[in-house]
């Protein structure tokens, strides 16, 4: 499989009122297309910052970031927005659905920023909703859905622009265990279909749904291991909880 992501000595500092806080201290790793990787670490380890940089929401301070072989370290704000629009999809812990808005309109949201006809938007959104099994809820308002359904809508929204990479930031954090399992199984299914998925979590049990875990602590990469298939299966069937 080709390299999708490659970081070389990636660093990130924040400057607040003249005080420099280093969050990432030089991370180097490669993620290939089609992988299912967990970035795992405790709170404050820098995993969310890493996801923001890999997801084109933030700039790195030093080092290099290659996406599909292209150096994307110094992209402008508009270029970053274009990358977010076409290359990546996000699933957040808080779902972040638009209130008082239908499932269909929520899923269509990312398509508003790409050049498509309304018919194409409708067709793609319906396809993405079908992929998470929520066709029967298309006309429902977001506040009429259960937590698990909301997260499935969020996954459909992340898929709708057919991205190369899907980020899931603590996707089960606000769900009961049964809904959480459903979400992880959907992500696993998407990975099997060829989607590259990066899961960000602080829980080992969640992280082990992926095939590979990158461990981060205090802004450093402390581990890079594959998850044994048997253990992964246990995670997927909920036996690890």
């Amino acid at each position: 499989m080709p390299e999708l992501i490659k970081t070389v000595d990636l660093k990130k500092d924040y400057i607040n009122d003249g005080v420099v806080t280093s969050v990432l201290h030089g991370l180097s790793f490669v993620i290939k297309a089609g992988e299912f990787v967990s970035i795992m670490g405790p709170s404050g380890s820098g995993k969310s910052t890493l996801m923001h940089i890999l997801g084109f929401l933030d700039h790195l301070t030093d080092g290099a970031y290659f996406f599909n072989g292209q150096d994307v370290s110094g992209l402008s704000e508009t270029e970053l927005a274009n990358m977010r629009s076409t290359k990546v999809g996000f699933v957040f812990q808080q779902f972040n659905l638009l209130p008082k808005t239908t499932v269909l309109d929520n899923v269509k949201l990312p398509l508003l920023y790409v050049d498509l006809t309304e018919d194409e938007r409708q067709a793609r959104a319906r396809q993405a909703i079908a992929a998470v099994g929520l066709e029967h809820r298309s006309g429902f308002l977001s506040n009429q859905l259960s937590g698990g359904e909301k997260q499935r809508v969020a996954i459909a929204r992340a898929l709708v622009n057919q991205p190369s990479l899907l980020f899931a930031d603590e996707p089960t954090g606000n769900l009961d265990s049964k809904s959480g399992e459903q979400i992880m199984n959907i992500l696993d299914g998407l990975n099997k279909q060829g989607h590259t998925i990066i899961l960000v979590t602080h829980e080992t049990a969640t992280a082990e749904h992926a095939r590979r875990i990158l461990r981060i602590k205090d802004g450093l990469l402390t581990g890079d291991e594959n998850v044994a298939e048997a253990r992964r299966q246990k995670a997927l069937t909920g036996e690890l909880k």
Binding site: A81, L112, Y113
Partner: peptide, 14 residues
């Protein structure tokens, strides 16, 4: 949050 979401899914500042 809505503005953040829009930007996260590809909206530019413009």
């Amino acid at each position: 949050r809505e503005i953040g979401l829009r930007k996260a899914v590809g909206a530019t500042s413009a």
